[in-house]
Design a protein around this nucleic acid. Structure first.
Lengths: 178, 178
DNA sequence: CTGGATAATGAGTCATGACTCGACTTGTCC
DNA sequence: GGACAAGTCGAGTCATGACTCATTATCCAG
């Protein structure tokens, strides 16, 4: 995972700036935001963005990879329920992930990164099951399905604190009781 | 609710054709499909579409209204659980509603139509509660939140029959047990 | 039947946004 | 410090898609 070793120093700097800018812009405005907006935020010309990421999808894929890696890392700091809660609460802020997991228009394949996330959630699920907090019958696919559904719902529905808590309560009860 | 009484006969026919075409096109390709595509499907020139619906949003709003009305009607034929199942199963087919309830890019306000749907779901909820099939603590907002979340999840995630059933099982268990 | 109002047509306008490329700048290696 | 590859710049190209409007066609009341 040695990145950009062969890149010139300024190019490395710009690449990083672009990634950060893109993450911020897409998080705020969704994946529909223009590449030019990203360039502006990064303080760089459009051409430079396209030199580093020949396609908008490439840029999105790069961000997605980072974000998924972050999620995997965060999963390590939580149990299944707090991870759910955390993610749902952040759904609006991390518009990008949700948008992309939802496959909005773009199609980007990151099987590796996604399966890492699944593994992480899988082990949270096992722990929870072992602790008796989740019914034996609950499997990973439906857990992931619930997670992504809730994130999308929270993102688009603009849930307030209370609604979010109530909705999660119902889902958690379901995970526990069957 | 007498519609288009003052429209010329051909205009009425075209209006209906456009609505049907738009419903089909947007259901299949999502709200991003172009107005021209709708016109083609309706067998009508673009100008005609814009004569009837000055804005793409107007067209979307008109369809949305129809679709919501249909949902309300269907709600009458179901109990809470079968309604959930039915909707989720149809999510992919009714891309439009899901897209729009999700507020994808467009913002269309149909407070009346939406609140009718909420009323309908509300009475299903009451029935279910009365029958002891749903816990007393469950309220309408979280029920709607779950409904829309699951539809979005199903739409974008491409759930198969089994995954859909399992996911709903978990949610239903949650509605029952807390 | 027919005149005038109503509607349909579709080529054209305009804005947006992804992507290109030739002129220019800058880092790096000797 | 000079040369050249590597990188940056940004005006320009191209495609798409919402929306317009002058012209033509169609309906229907009298």
């Amino acid at each position: 995972m040695i990145e950009g070793t062969s890149l010139r120093a300024d190019a490395q700097r710009n690449r990083a700036r672009i990634l950060d800018a893109a993450e911020a812009i897409f998080a705020e405005f969704g994946t529909r935001a223009s590449t030019e907006e990203v360039a502006r935020r990064a303080g760089v010309a459009i051409g430079t963005v396209f030199r580093h990421f020949p396609t908008k999808d490439d840029l999105l894929a790069a961000i997605m990879k980072r974000l998924l890696a972050q999620l995997v890392e965060e999963a390590g700091k939580h149990d299944l329920f707090t991870f759910f809660t955390h993610l749902v609460a952040q759904a609006a802020a991390k518009k990008t992930v949700v948008d992309l997991l939802a496959g909005s228009g773009v199609d980007i394949r990151l099987p590796d990164a996604v399966s890492h996330l699944e593994e992480a959630v899988g082990s949270l699920l096992e722990q929870a099951r072992a602790a008796g907090a989740v019914a034996d019958s609950v499997r990973l696919p439906e857990t992931m399905a619930l997670l992504t559904s809730l994130c999308q719902g929270a993102l688009h529905g603009g849930w307030d604190q209370q609604l979010q808590a109530r909705t999660l309560t119902v889902v958690f009860a379901g995970l526990e009781h069957d």
